[in-house]
Amino acid sequence: MKRLTAAMVMALVGCDAPGPEFRDTPATRIHIGKSSFDIRVKGTRAEAIRLNTEYAPRLAAVAPRGVYAIEKVSGCRVRRIEGDAAVMRAWLDCGGRLEPLPRAFEFECSIDVVYESFADLTCEPI
């Protein structure tokens, strides 16, 4: 029984654990639509960990919100993204800057107007 309990605790602890590259990087929490992410930015790389549960998520469904979250927090454009619906890693284009802009620790965002494949995003630090 002790082994089962220890395994369950370790599995839960790893739910929001960053990858090795972002281990010592503080997270910024951001809420976009129905998704919540912890974003960690280090240099021109970023990691987005989705915190909420969603029924049968696919990367294609979650990635647009993840990209918006990373861009809002970092102040840089996402050049490339990989991963899955739970953890996304991005390469950033910061317009020649080696470091992203300074950031707040938590944002609340809303999607205002949705076009065919684009949306207006409004974010406020909280």
Rank of each mutant, 00 (worst) to 15 (best):
S74P: 03
R50M: 11
M1I: 10
T25L: 00
L4K: 15
A6T: 11
S36Y: 02
T44Y: 00
D120E: 14
A17L: 14
F105K: 11
G33K: 04
M8Q: 15
D112C: 13
E99S: 05
V73L: 02
V113R: 14
P26M: 07
R103L: 06
P18G: 04
D84R: 02
A104W: 06
F118A: 15
G14T: 07
A6P: 01
R103D: 06
A48W: 05
M10F: 04
P20W: 11
A69V: 09
T5C: 15
R58D: 00
P57A: 04
R65V: 02
V113F: 12
A17H: 10
G66K: 09
I30K: 02
N52C: 13
R77T: 13
S110I: 14
V62M: 11
E47F: 08
L101H: 12
R45V: 00
K72Y: 01
R65C: 06
A90I: 03
A56L: 10
L4E: 15
V9I: 09
I30C: 01
E108P: 04
G95R: 07
A90P: 08
K42V: 10
L51H: 07
G75I: 02
V67T: 05
K2R: 13
D112E: 15
K42W: 08
A119G: 09
D24R: 11
G66Y: 10
P64A: 09
T53Y: 12
L98Q: 02
A17I: 04
V73S: 02
A119M: 07
A119Y: 05
G83C: 00
D112H: 14
E71N: 04
R77A: 15
F105H: 09
S117H: 08
A46F: 08
A85P: 02
V78G: 06
R77P: 06
E21R: 12
R103V: 05
L4A: 15
T5M: 15
S110W: 10
K72F: 02
C123L: 04
A119E: 10
